[in-house]
Amino acid sequence: MAQEKETVPSSLITLTVGLLVAGISVWYGQNNGLLPEQISKQAPLVDNLFDLMVTIGTALFLLVEGAIVFALIKFRRRKGDETDSPHIKGNFPLEVFWTAIPAFIVIGLGIYSVQLYSEMGGFDNVKKAVASNPAESIVELASASRSDINPLLLAQGNSIINRYGIGGNPDTAKTLPDLEVNVKGIQYAWLFNYPDSGITAGELHIPVNEDIKLNIEAEDVIHSFWLPQFRIKQDAIPGETTQLRFTATETGTYPVVCAELCGAYHGAMRTNIVIHTQEEYAQWVEDNKIARSPDFEQTVAATSQPVDDGEFMKPYVKDLGIDAESLKALQ
């Protein structure tokens, strides 16, 4: 095509195309509107990564597709032309260029991901906790084998450090979470147990702007604890305790979704996370503490009812086999 007459200098065309592609990509990256609200501290971080990838992806897609469509139109076979095209077999600098650029992009993305993951709290582990909390018990914890940890720490009101999941980020890992909740996945419900107040509930209630930690377990099969508006997810694995640590940034009610196939009613394994103001939360704890002591069954019945999803749970309640009795058995 170099031979053909060009009225506009090709560098100018390249520049315009480049700017146009860049403009569209950046705009779409910022305005794709594909992700739901951001309710946790991690959410904006994840969304920034996604938006960046959308920008890069859009640019690459437009360039590749643009080139293809252009080639299809410009280099289509003309009627009556039975000849072959010029014998061009490669262009070494060009090939190096299009190997190097993607390599550069993916390495950049990789480094960014690692850094972001650390900021989200992905690297929280025993070592860090020990370094920041030189109390003797924690040192013991580091050397003790996993099975010894629970009683020791629970006795002292300390946090268990789990191997898998999202924990504290470099800042928050230095301190203990404000609230811990033990989460258990069963076919097909989530159970929440608040160790400090003894409450057991079917919905997760937490105060806003506080550092929450969930210790996630599974009773029967693998489930996966997903908070779409928080952009975090962690499998609940039989035989392992995993964790999620986050801070909610707004009050409201949002879905808790089971994301791992766990049986026929996997789709119905939904509940809510309710984020209160500090005062409301205190009130909720009070109410439920009172309700709990005299009559346990009643509390479970009151709290394990998924609010919005009640409709599609109803027809299956008998199949689900979650009634107060089986709940009690699990306690």
Partner: peptide, 16 residues
């Protein structure tokens, strides 16, 4: 879209 899935921080949201 596979590349977006390849980054763990984003994949945690959209996995499964």
């Amino acid at each position: 879209s596979g590349v977006t899935l390849g980054t763990a921080p984003f994949d945690i949201h959209v996995h499964d």
